[in-house]
């Protein structure tokens, strides 16, 4: 295991920037997750670390050594592919042994390590099977075992769970995380499943359009999103567009005057988390903002209820409330009041 340093990595295709100036450090034994919408450059970044794509600029360092110019077979990076990419003509044991053969590990050691690694992913006794004789989840574990067997400096996972069904995905993600912690693996995983990212990562990286937008813990990203994109991408936010007239004073496009936390004068968006808003039939006391509105849409999610409230012709909010017994549940068309503390909203200047 080793520390991974990504320095000012750039990948251009013609004049299209797939990755622009990405710098990240993954500490020894850390689990970093790259999160972002489709096409934001996650896979490209990961493949530059693995050595499959040559960066247009920048450096990749593994354990302090610059590997930017090394081909993939000279880097000690274990990769798990989305399609698993098992060797279909080799047995499970031969698949896992492949990397050890390349490293010229002597036969007895090799057999022992293959056994150990298969045990690690709970596939003892499956060594003699061919990949096509395994279920999707088992194939996924073989792919993981194959990458782990070489004792990689860094483990790279590109949407490793996307081909599993929802239930299996939850199990496997706990398994991978436990294994990673037990072995102290430096790991980079790509996903666009937020829940997956939240349950597995030590730290998350949110990317958009080839750039890193924010790096931090789950809490950092949720409570203190660095920009409007992160606020919208991590968790859920509704945005009210308007202008900051003076710090602490926000006017929406619909003309509503709101109290907000900070902000500098100019065009801006006020971001509000649906679950941080309160809703009631009568005006709410003790809150910085309290506005009347009309319920336009109610969606019943089981444990939660989403209520879309129109505050003015140009302003609409989503309020999420817990579905408590005897709790307040307005109907469509009903007049309500929505309120929140200034600190519950966040202002992003445009």
């Amino acid at each position: 295991m080793a520390q991974l340093d990504i320095q000012n990595l750039v990948k251009r295709y013609g004049d299209f920037h797939a990755v622009r100036d990405v710098s990240l450090t993954v500490a020894d034994g850390e689990f970093l997750v790259l999160l972002g919408p489709s096409g934001c450059g996650k896979t490209t970044t990961l493949r530059m670390v693995a050595g499959f794509i040559e960066p247009s600029a920048g450096h990749v360092k593994l354990g302090g050594a610059d590997v930017t110019l090394l081909p993939p077979w000279k880097r000690n990076a274990g990769m798990v592919f989305q399609s698993y990419a098992l060797f279909p003509h080799l047995t499970v044991a031969q698949n896992v042994a492949f990397g050890l053969e390349m490293r010229k590990v002597p036969r007895p050691d090799m057999n022992r390590r293959v056994e150990e690694t298969l045990a690690l992913v709970r596939l003892e006794g499956y060594g003699g099977r061919l990949p096509r004789q395994l279920s999707g989840g088992q194939q996924q574990r073989v792919a993981l075992a194959r990458a782990l067997a070489i004792h990689p400096d860094v483990l790279l996972l590109d949407e490793p769970l996307s081909n599993l069904d929802a239930k299996l995905r939850q199990e496997v993600r706990v398994e991978i995380r436990e294994l990673q912690q037990r072995m102290g693996l430096t790991t980079v995983m790509v996903t666009h499943d937020q829940e997956e990212a939240l349950t597995m990562a030590d730290r998350l990286v949110v990317m958009n359009e080839g750039s890193v937008r924010q790096v931090g813990s789950q809490r950092d990203l949720y409570e203190r999103p660095a920009d409007k994109f992160v606020a919208g991408f991590v968790g859920r936010s509704t945005f009210l567009d308007g202008t900051v007239e003076a710090p602490g004073c926000f006017r929406t496009e619909g003309g509503l005057s709101l109290v907000c936390a900070g902000g500098t004068a100019g065009k801006a968006s006020l971001s509000l988390r649906p679950e941080r808003l309160e809703i009631a039939a009568a005006p709410l006391a003790g809150l910085d903002n309290c506005l009347p509105g009309t319920v336009e849409f109610v969606s019943y999610l089981g444990a939660m209820i989403d209520i879309h409230v129109r505050l003015s012709p140009a302003d609409r909010l989503v309020v999420q409330i817990a579905n408590r017994e005897g709790g307040f549940t307005p109907d469509v068309g009903q007049s309500v009041h929505v309120g929140w503390r200034a600190s519950a909203g966040q202002v992003f200047n445009a």
């Binding site: 274990g78 990397g99 194959r146 070489i150």
Partner: peptide, 9 residues
């Protein structure tokens, strides 16, 4: 690519 990443030239 899997073969490459496992160390096969």
């Amino acid at each position: 690519e899997a073969a490459f990443s496992l160390g096969a030239p």
